[in-house]
Design a protein around this nucleic acid. Sequence first.
DNA 1: AGAATACGTCAGCTTTGTTGACATTCCAAG
DNA 2: CTTGGAATGTCAACAAAGCTGACGTATTCT
Lengths: 184, 184
Amino acid sequence: MSTKLTYSEFGELGNAMTQSGQSTTGQTLLFLTDEQLRKGTEAMFFAYRGFTADPDRILSERGYGRAHHRAVHFIHRSPGTTVNNLIAILGVTKQSLNRVLRTLVEDGLVLNTVGKKDKRERHLYLTETGTTLERALSDAQRDRMRAAYRAAGPSAVAGFRQVLEAMMDQEMRRHYDTLKDRIE
Amino acid sequence: MSTKLTYSEFGELGNAMTQSGQSTTGQTLLFLTDEQLRKGTEAMFFAYRGFTADPDRILSERGYGRAHHRAVHFIHRSPGTTVNNLIAILGVTKQSLNRVLRTLVEDGLVLNTVGKKDKRERHLYLTETGTTLERALSDAQRDRMRAAYRAAGPSAVAGFRQVLEAMMDQEMRRHYDTLKDRIE
DNA sequence: AGAATACGTCAGCTTTGTTGACATTCCAAG
DNA sequence: CTTGGAATGTCAACAAAGCTGACGTATTCT
């Protein structure tokens, strides 16, 4: 009840006020109606669908799912990463990841080497075939991202990234920031 | 092979070039490295997780899932929408939607009325309880979105929306644009 | 009258997540 | 050297949420 500020109550005023910032104080003021925020959540919803649509097509052709994509992506990003690392990044249980990882190893897309320093750990690498799939997937996904970036322009891209980064959990932000969560 | 432009090949130059646009032609030129685009896809991945985290907590407390959230959201957005409409927006099969909708009706969150003009259609409305849940969910989600918006600033928000909108499928863009896909 | 549409439902299958239990291997501390 | 705990893997059972296919009913359109 306290946050009942529908766009009808604000009328047309709301949209105009979104763009207005008070730069004198250094602290930017934003007046956000529920309607504007709803539009933002729906933008996320619909855009994420588009974002995954192209890779999903490729994956289903080869009998894989989105979980395989994520695993392949992050192994490609930081080769030699451990299973536990991957679990933390992906936010799934080891059982869930293991099922995906097992099929990828069986199919010869991922390599599984015992750690030299700590032999309990398994270090994960993409094979040739794995790299090929990763490239196909990321090419498809990047094409759309590139098109969106081009359509929106450079300053829009910067804003896009800023908002997304502010929307992450702090914990995930750490994974996002580190290029490599490497090994010894 | 043709798109093998890793960030190492571009070196430090890449990041600087992202921000540079040629505004003289009207057509903005963007030089995007694979690394920059990868950062964008990961931003989407991590941010979407944050985006759904808060509602997910509330939902699981009450024995619902993300699918229920989506249904409740879009019924709230356009009260009286039909089942077929919802199917088109959500991009799921009627069987899948039906399972969710059935529990919502049974639990008294959603109302199901026969269409006046076309009696084959069922129009969907939220009840009091349904509206209460919707508010709890969207409040949680909006809090994060609001915080992200405030942190990023007004121009970032505009860019955020622009990129997301460019990333949608055209078909979904239509649903996104129409405030109300109403009835007679 | 017959075709098409909107909806609901039954049955079965898949992916991807979850718990819980248990074994193995190994590191490190006592 | 023994032992506790960490890292990994695996088995089993289960749930959410998607899918296809088939069928039935009511209604509307042609």
